[in-house]
């Protein structure tokens, strides 16, 4: 999907063309949903957060500025939505209650079979991360935002964000490598 196509869809949405909103969000749908799913820990919450993100982004699209990448803007909304919601709930409970197998949802049984083991390992590794580290790691993985943008979205200094990323990658690496041995 070209940047020009994305820009055209953004313009249409700004002009109130509701039909352009679906195709625009669809560009980032999987990454966005995956991010919310990993962060919240269950599909039901992730769907609620996804819906709220859609509502907020549609209402705010007229204020969107091209100075920022659309994906970064969208993920920042998703991030704040998730943080607001998660703060209201018992965060620890949400994280520990996560059941890796139930998070998976794919219609491809072949891929499911091959990737299940490694997928569960990565999933478990991510689940074990402290919340702040997980937040930064998932934003980077799913949104592709730069660390500078992540720092802005999370209201953290750049060095703190880099430190979170450093430790999360180190932990995931250790968990994956040690389990593979």
């Amino acid at each position: 999907m070209s940047a020009t196509h994305e820009q055209t869809l953004i313009e249409k949405c700004r002009n109130g063309e509701t039909a352009a909103f679906g195709p625009l969000i669809k560009i980032y749908r999987k990454q966005l949903f995956s991010y919310l799913l990993r962060l919240s820990g269950n599909r039901e919450d992730a769907e609620d957060l996804f819906q709220e993100t859609l509502i907020k982004s549609w209402r705010g699209i007229k204020k969107y500025s091209e100075l920022q990448k659309f994906s970064s803007w969208l993920f920042t909304i998703a991030h704040h939505t998730a943080m607001d919601k998660l703060r209201k709930r018992n965060r620890e409970t949400m994280i520990t209650e996560t059941e890796p197998d139930k998070l998976s949802h794919t219609n491809d049984p072949h891929k499911e079979l091959i990737g299940k083991e490694i997928r569960n390992k990565i999933q478990r590794a991510v689940e074990f991360l402290p919340f702040k580290q997980k937040e930064v790691f998932l934003l980077r993985v799913n949104s592709g935002m730069s660390f500078k943008e992540i720092a802005q979205a999370t209201n953290e200094p750049l060095n703190t964000v880099l430190s979170h990323m450093h430790y999360s990658v180190k932990k995931i690496k250790r968990l994956l490598w040690s389990e593979n041995e």
Partner: peptide, 27 residues
């Protein structure tokens, strides 16, 4: 590798019909 593999392995999606309904409600 860690970033790319995580991205690849932990990508999920929602049902198309559910997505359409959500978009409809959002707009």
């Amino acid at each position: 590798v860690v970033i790319n593999q995580t991205r690849e392995e932990l990508t999920d999606d929602i049902l198309e019909s559910k997505y359409d309904r959500m978009i409809e409600q959002a707009v």
